[in-house]
Amino acid sequence: MAEINVTPMVDVMLVLLIIFMVTAPLLVTGVPVDLPDSKASALKADDTPVQVSIDKAGDVFVDEMRIEGGGLTAKLSAIRGARSDDTRVYVRADTSLDYGRVMGVVGEVSAAGFKRVALVSQPEKAGR
């Protein structure tokens, strides 16, 4: 027989495609944060925004890197020096945190020189 049967190869490739399609959305999230609900519409996505996350324990992360103590302003200033002036910063905070803690982090972002700061929420659920 001089022919090659490609049907098994196509079947395997389709299964791999389905596996990647299912697992790809799970790889996007970084720091687990329970975001508050909001009626606000989604913002237009920037190329590479900086994400500042505050988890339930109050720990601060910059793009999945934990920031110790008061080093947030210094880290953000270094990032601002390496990026353009119109870089957007997304602040993601857990629902259980108090308003003062979140505003303290937003203040540090502003002190680092970023002008475009956005608070991230998830769309409001229909039952609420």
Rank of each mutant, 00 (worst) to 15 (best):
L27C: 01
L35H: 04
N5V: 10
K75H: 10
T7Y: 11
G113R: 01
A2V: 14
V22K: 00
T7I: 15
A82W: 03
K56T: 11
L43Y: 03
G71A: 05
A93C: 05
D47N: 10
A45S: 13
M21Q: 06
V106M: 15
I18R: 01
A45D: 12
G113W: 08
I79S: 02
V12G: 02
R101P: 04
R101H: 08
D98C: 02
P49D: 08
A112V: 09
R92D: 03
L17N: 00
A126P: 15
S38W: 09
P36A: 05
T48S: 06
V28A: 08
R128P: 01
Q51V: 15
G81P: 07
F114T: 09
R66Y: 05
A111V: 07
F61G: 02
G58L: 08
K56Y: 06
A111F: 07
E124N: 02
F20E: 06
M9F: 14
D37L: 08
A78H: 07
A126W: 10
L17H: 00
L17V: 14
L17A: 14
I19P: 00
A45I: 14
G127Q: 10
A93L: 11
N5S: 07
L16D: 00
E108R: 10
M21G: 13
L27A: 14
D59N: 14
S53C: 04
R80C: 06
L97F: 06
V28P: 03
S84I: 11
F61H: 05
E3D: 09
A2K: 13
L27R: 08
G100N: 11
V28L: 12
D85F: 07
